[in-house]
Design a protein around this nucleic acid. Structure first.
Lengths: 143, 143
DNA sequence: ATGAGTGCAAACCGTTTGCAATCGG
DNA sequence: CCGATTGCAAACGGTTTGCACTCAT
């Protein structure tokens, strides 16, 4: 099931949140691309739908949507970060270092590795954060 | 080989950098713990060795030491980040979510998983960033 | 009608920059 | 001695907060 404005709006309502113009504008912005968007980029794109969308509202909306797992933050190694629409379940991001396109990998073949780490360190492992960078199919052909 | 103030200082010199009091203070601070330290924490600890150590100098020193791979940045999922002394080669961090102790895992059993990702996505994989969180041996016994 | 949601302006925090003074080799 | 390094103060960019107004339900 692919996310649409309707399904996303529905999820907002289910969590008891109001469906407002600014929130629709943020969703529109995120739906318009597979790349992670910064709050400022979301504001710029969102203003096509809600002309006076404020940056503060974008922050508050993203915080809200992160809580109900509608969006997921993407932290890159260089510290910059953005948001993408979330797909349910445990996923990892693969990010093109040239065009920043993102693919989510669901399911994760790291169970064995994590067991090894647990044994080796004595830690009880509770979570992990993995982001993979590379060149997407398109960008491999562009020098 | 465990890093000491002497070996670290040596590396600085080898790269043509001067060995100054503030830089020693930063190294002292990092040697004093296995936890990642923020620039502000490094300044506070470092002032025990160099009373007027400035925060700006800490930033510039960390930048320098990151370049010559004396220290490594640690980004946590919650966005806060710090620095730890680096061990050579490709490593991953395992961080205790309670006391923030860090263990580095060298070597990394993720080759197969990355190949799988490459096949599945069509990306040419160039790098990855993995941080594992859990409870260290000590903290498992504290509720 | 009424509380959730909004925009604005200002506060805030961590980081970076310009510059004159200082220190190490 | 001389350039690398430092500390200070100020600029900076992104994020958060206080508050009065507005909107969705």
């Amino acid at each position: 099931m692919t996310a649409t404005l309707e399904t996303l709006a529905q999820q907002l309502r289910e969590h008891g949140h109001k469906l407002t113009q600014p929130r629709c504008a943020v969703l529109h912005a995120l739906l318009s691309t597979a790349k992670p968007l910064s709050p400022a980029e979301i504001q710029a794109l969102g203003q096509g739908f809600c002309a006076d969308l404020g940056l503060v509202t974008v922050y508050r909306t993203l915080e809200l949507m992160e809580e109900i797992e509608l969006v997921r933050p993407v932290h890159l190694a260089d510290g910059c970060h953005g948001y993408v629409l979330a797909t349910p379940g445990h996923t990892h991001h693969v990010i093109c270092e040239r065009c920043h396109a993102v693919i989510e990998i669901s399911g994760c073949g790291m169970g064995d590795f994590l067991n090894f780490v647990a044994e080796r360190t004595g830690y009880r492992i509770t979570g992990h954060w993995l982001e993979i960078s590379g060149l997407c199919a398109d960008c491999q052909h562009i020098p």
